[in-house]
Design a protein around this nucleic acid. Structure first.
Length: 425
RNA sequence: GGAGAGGUGGCUGAGUGGUUGAAAGCGGCGGUCUUGAAAACCGUUGUAGGCGUAAGUUUACCGGGGGUUCGAAUCCCUCCCUCUCCGCCA
């Protein structure tokens, strides 16, 4: 959520930001509602002040045994007006809030203005030693490999649940679990994140806090009977750990890492993009979340990306970093880097991670603050999160890049102590 | 699923209709004392909104929402949550 004061004082700046994000601009409506709201508060507060004063007089009159019926009758009229105003105010604030909750975060000034993914900017790429985009043999894709080696069974996954619910079997299941543990251990032991194992179902307040609701309601699984949503990412439960809290400045930055299964309805996604692991309804992800002081959040964003890169370098997987342009930036993000890993079979880059700075956008919605040591006053902190990483797309690159001409998979050395095998054949 | 108890400020915990934002204690902050620290003593101490350049002023907040009343932490309704016991269960 944006600060209403920012909108009030810099409407043009806000409008430009929203338009660059290619979202609907309803700033003028907000300004009208806001000024109506303030005017109504002003009038009603005066009435309330009068009522409070008069109540004390009534108490005194009654104590001394005097008659207060005239003044009580007058106060009844005042009270009725207050009731009326309060209900108008409530409606007004509800409408204002409804619009405000649909206003996206503004892009940071360093973000390139652009319309779509076409305009994203490649920042750098990393390729393993001896890597080549040319192949000596025709690589199998992850679906063919999974079938041949009996480690992925998309048909049976579809039988059990429906398409987009992958089933991992035997060494595929072990490899998946090993990857998760490897990534968690690295972030915990080398990057100083504290481990979280979050709930996978959350309430609507949590979904609003991180910005999934109200805009993304159709993209989430919802359990009507219990009013709970399946999380699309661990970002939701982990960020909401500190909802409605005031943290000590000394405790910042707070860094969490957690594994979760992620559930996405992917409403309206069809076609080639959706085969195998490329677009699924359930996948596994290790997520990093940071709560930081505003002045450090852009340094922390760079750190976040480099923590995710460490994983890929350790696994020897080719990747590139993109800075998303304004048009491709998500609703809540002010700046975002995507990490894409190389798929030799698809002959393209696959998004395996997104690292974003939300500045105070989520903190405002979720009411997460910290007490400043200089002013002793609470202020909204900045939140960031990044995948470190999602296993599905990572698995595609891992399998395809490590296959032999015979269709065997060489397991990267760093995973051996987790898998207890070095090859899948 | 059944039965019961309870939700008050950073924490513990008073408070059953009229200067109660809320006693007391703890904690925090500032000070006195001390070479320093502790102890003791004194003072201070929430959040959000409105108006105001500011000083300041005003409103709201005792789990959420609604109601009764001139006036609600206190009475009524409703929802949520936590705890205990029983049942079921990985």
């Amino acid at each position: 959520m944006l600060d209403i004061k920012l909108i009030r004082e810099n409407p043009e700046l806000v409008k430009t930001g929203i338009e660059n994000k290619r979202e609907k601009n309803r700033i003028d409506e907000i300004l009208v509602l806001d000024s109506k709201r303030r005017e109504l508060i002003f009038r009603t507060d005066e009435l309330k002040s009068k009522r409070n004063q008069t109540s004390m007089e009534i108490a005194k009159l009654k104590k001394s045994g005097a008659d207060a019926s005239n003044i009580i009758a007058e106060m009844k009229r005042v009270s009725d007006e207050i009731t009326l105003n309060d209900s108008q105010l409530k409606d007004l604030e509800a409408s204002l809030n409804d619009i405000l909750m649909f206003i996206p975060n503004l892009p940071h000034s360093s973000v390139p203005v652009g319309k779509s993914a076409e305009d994203n900017v490649e920042v750098r790429r990393w390729l393993p030693e001896g890597f080549s985009f040319e192949n000596d043999f025709k690589p199998l894709d992850h679906i063919e490999l999974g079938k041949k080696l009996k480690i992925l069974d998309f048909e049976r996954g579809a039988k059990i649940s429906g398409s987009g619910f992958p089933l991992y079997t035997s060494r595929g299941a072990t490899l998946e679990r090993s990857l998760i543990n490897f990534m968690l251990d690295k972030h915990i032991n080398e990057h100083n994140y504290s481990e979280i194992f979050p709930p996978f179902l959350v309430n609507a307040d949590s979904m609003r806090g991180t910005g999934q609701l109200p805009k993304m309601a159709d993209d989430m699984y919802f359990l009507q009977k219990d009013d709970l949503y399946l999380i699309p990412t661990a970002e939701v439960p982990v960020t909401n750990i500190h909802r409605d809290e005031i943290l000590d400045e000394k405790s910042l930055p707070v860094k969490y890492v957690g594994y979760s299964a992620c559930f996405r309805r992917e409403a309206g996604s069809y076609g080639k993009e959706s085969k195998g692991f490329l677009r699924v309804h359930q996948f596994n992800k290790v997520e990093m979340v940071k709560f930081v002081k505003p002045e450090t959040s852009y340094d922390e964003l760079e750190g976040l990306v480099s923590d995710a890169e460490d994983i890929l370098q350790a696994l020897n997987i080719p990747y590139r970093i993109l800075m998303l342009c304004t048009g491709d930036l998500s609703f809540s993000a002010a700046k975002c880097y995507d990490i894409e890993t190389w798929s030799p079979a698809e002959n393209k880059w696959l998004e395996a991670s997104s690292c974003s700075n939300f500045e105070s956008f989520q903190a405002r919605r979720a009411n997460i603050r910290y007490r400043r040591e200089d002013t002793k006053k609470p202020d909204f902190l900045h939140t960031l999160n990044g995948s470190g990483l999602a296993t599905s797309r990572l698995m595609v690159s891992l399998l395809e890049n490590n296959q032999t001409p015979e269709g065997k998979i060489i397991i990267p050395r760093v995973l051996h102590k987790y898998t207890n095998f070095g090859i899948i054949e």
